[in-house]
Structure formats: structure tokens, C-alpha cells
Design a protein around this nucleic acid. Sequence first.
DNA 1: GTTAGTGTATTAGTAGAGTAATACACTAAA
DNA 2: TTTAGTGTATTACTCTACTAATACACTAAC
Lengths: 131, 131
Amino acid sequence: MIRVDESSPVPIYQQIVEEVKRAVLTGVFGPDQRLPSIRELALELKVNPNTVAKAYQEMEAQRVIYFRRGQGAYISPRSEEERVQEAQREISRLFRQVLDIAHSLRLSRSRLNDLFRQAAQEHPDMKEEKP
Amino acid sequence: MIRVDESSPVPIYQQIVEEVKRAVLTGVFGPDQRLPSIRELALELKVNPNTVAKAYQEMEAQRVIYFRRGQGAYISPRSEEERVQEAQREISRLFRQVLDIAHSLRLSRSRLNDLFRQAAQEHPDMKEEKP
DNA sequence: GTTAGTGTATTAGTAGAGTAATACACTAAA
DNA sequence: TTTAGTGTATTACTCTACTAATACACTAAC
């Protein structure tokens, strides 16, 4: 069940990509599961097929889905390890941004650790874990 | 000395904002220092005054600079505390993104700490500090 | 009050992203 | 081989962000 907000400034094709990726992450879509066809989804969302196609091409480029000729689009069966490695790369990228900012303002490493602890404390899904 | 890359996809006015903000962070521009006037900078960059004006308005909105009627634009003398607080808010925002990703993939808190340590080790300006 | 310097408003042109209408080409299955 | 389903290509429209040309209005300093 993919939904889209027509009035949002975020492009429709991008909303579709985000919805599907989130559904994969949360396990709503499993490996090799078939997605609605481009035409089906276009009808359901009342949108042009090319718009859905653009979203699907984007996801294929990101290896989130793959196509079977004449059959449709399917969730790529990425291994848990692949997904974790990607997530770690993204996390490292964010950490580097943090370190850049911290350095330009001469924030100490321990202050960063405090901020991280605090963010974790306040995070709805991380409350249970203690430093 | 503000420079701009004409061929970049990043809008000129935004490049100006980034250049100035970076110059403030690195201390190239000090508190209450006068910026080139809109016209001057427009001539120097071979760009329309309105383009520079947009950059300056953006920075005024962000309280990076202020105007003196009829005189020009000046660097806002923000206190160290203000700048640090802003940086901390930005850092917290990045940490929350990290925690969102970590949660969706069930990465442990200690794995996150490892990644943070590693990023700090590899960061060119943070090498000297040890956890 | 004049002047030379500020920033600003108005209007218009350009380029790009996003979406749609429509027609096409291929595949699987009967 | 037909058919009903896939994705794709072509073309065009629309909307927005960005930039520019030009003219305006205000301020400080003499």
C-alpha cells in the first residue's frame, strides 16, 4: 500500500521511492516480493505511468528493486550484511559532518559524546539502551 | 575575497551565503566587519545586484549579517555562546538521523560508538583527541 | 540641497524539473 | 499466433527557481 501526497512539494516519484524503501527497511516488503506494476500503481495513485516509471528506474539504479522482463518489478534480495554496510556508510558520512561542525567551533570530543548520549536518551526507540 | 563558480548547479546567491558563513566560522570575517556593498560585489562577481541582494537578505534572515541604513552590510557580532548553541542544535539533528537509521537496521548502540570513534580517528582535525 | 553611495522594487527572460498524453516495443502465457 | 500484460520512448505542457535589466527610494556626508 503506497500512498502519495499530491499537495506536497516533494516530487511524486521521489515520494514513491521513499515509501518503498521504508517499506523494505521495516520489513513490509520482503525479498523477491513483487511490486505493483507501473500501470497498476499509476492508476491507483491517479498519476501518469511515466511518473511511476521514473520512481522505479531510480530504485533499480539504487538496487532496491530489479525487473523481470515482461513480468514486473521485484524487491532486490539484498543480504542483511549489504544493508548494514550501506547504513554504516551513511552513518559515517553523518558523523563526519558532525565532526566538521564540531571542529570549526572547537567543540570538545567529550561534549560531542554528551550530545550523542543525550540524543540517544531522547530517541523514542533507543530509550532502553544505556551508554 | 568571495568567489563563485558560474558553472556550478548550485545557485550563485547560495554560493555567496556559504562563502560568507564559512569565512565567519574560520575567522576571516570578524564581528562588525563591513562586507562589500551589494553593488561592489555584484560588479566583482559580474552578476546582477539582485542576485547579491538575495544572498544578503538570506544572511540577514539567518542573522549572519545586519544592515546599517545607507551604509552597507556588516557581520553580526554573535556571541560565542550563540554560535555554539546553534552548532549543538545542528549536531543533535544529525545525531537523530543517525539514530533513526541505526534503529531501522537494529544496529547496537555500541556499534554506533565504534563508528563514531572510527570517524573521529580518521578525521583530519580530530586525530589528536583520544576517546 | 546636492551628490554619491546605499538597498529595493518591478518586470521579464531562461532553464530545468516534474508530469502528462500518447504511441510504441517487448514478453509470457494461453 | 494471439492476447493481455509488462516497461519505454517521444513530445509537450506547466510551474518554479534563478538571474538580469532597469528604474526607484532612501541615507549620509558634504
